[in-house]
């Protein structure tokens, strides 16, 4: 399987580390409730078909990317940057 790192280009999956469901969102930092955190940490939709997930280009630029992938066919639909440099990269592309 190949993923396109928005910073480095098309790379083999073995350069990346899987970080799981991109829709598992941490509650706001002020929130200290068990309920909200348990949902964040333990509960997963685990859909078949399209799945949004975070990967880290660990053996490359170490940036995180959001991948949309069909988990039934392993077809990679899109790879988008996330994190502090994401905006800058998108701006850079637009110009």
């Amino acid at each position: 399987m190949l993923l396109t790192c928005p910073y480095c280009g098309l790379r083999d999956q073995s350069e990346f580390t899987y970080r799981g469901d991109a829709n598992a969102r941490r509650p706001s930092f002020a929130d200290e409730s068990i309920e909200a955190h348990a949902a964040y940490v333990f509960d997963r939709e685990n859909p078949s078909g399209l799945h949004e997930e975070i990967w880290n280009h660990t053996s490359g630029c170490r940036n995180h990317i959001k991948v949309v992938r069909n988990v039934t066919t392993h077809e990679v639909v899109s790879c988008e940057p996330v994190g502090p440099f994401a905006k800058a990269l998108k701006r850079g592309r637009a110009t």
Binding site: Y18, S48, H51, V71, T72, H74
Partner: peptide, 13 residues
């Protein structure tokens, strides 16, 4: 294989 999957096949690594 370290990623979510419903395909009954894996990859080379």
């Amino acid at each position: 294989d370290y990623y979510n999957s419903y395909a009954q096949r894996g990859n080379l690594p």
